[in-house]
Amino acid sequence: MTEERVEITLAVNGHDERVTVEPRWLLSDVLRRECGLLGVHVGCEHGVCGACTVLLDGEPVRSCLMFAVQAAGHQLTTVEALGTADHLDPVQQAFWEAHGLQCGFCTPGMVLTARALLDRDPHPSEETIRETLAGNLCRCTGYQFIVDAVLLAADKRAEGAEGGA
C-alpha cells in the first residue's frame, strides 16, 4: 500500500499545530516527534501504564490508543502547558514538596491525571485519589507519596483560590 499522508491541525496547549501525518501514527508519537512535546512519555504502547496520558477536552486519555488524525477538532493539553520551572503548577509544586516522584517517567501522566481530577473534584478523598491513579503505573515511589502529593495539591489549589478572591 502506498504511504498515505494527511494534513491535520492539532489544537495543543492553546495553539494550533499544522502537521502532516500517516493515519496510522499514534497521537503519542505525533505529539513527541512532530510537535516536540517530549513530556508525553511512551511506556507500554498498549494502554496499561498511563505514562502517555494527555488531556483531550480536559479529560485524561491514553495518547498511545488514539491516532493523531482522531484528535483534530479537540483541545489537547500536555504537561508542557502546566507550569514553568520558575512557576510550577500547584500540582507540580505539590509533587515536588511531597516527593511524589523519583525517576520521573510516570510523572507527566500522574500530574495530568491529578490535575483533571482536581478540576472535577477539588477535594477528593484518599480513596478517590487511589482509584483514579490506579490507571497510572509508577515503579519507584510505592504510590504513597503520590497520593500525599495530590492531597497537598488540593490544599494548595484551595489556598490559591482564597488568595485570589
Binding site: 494502554g47 498511563g50 496520558t53 479529560e59 485524561p60 486519555v61 497510572n136
Partner: peptide, 9 residues
C-alpha cells in the same frame, strides 16, 4: 470498567 483514561474513550 477500566481506568478513567480508558473510560473517557
Amino acid at each position: 470498567i477500566g481506568h478513567w483514561g480508558i473510560r473517557t474513550r
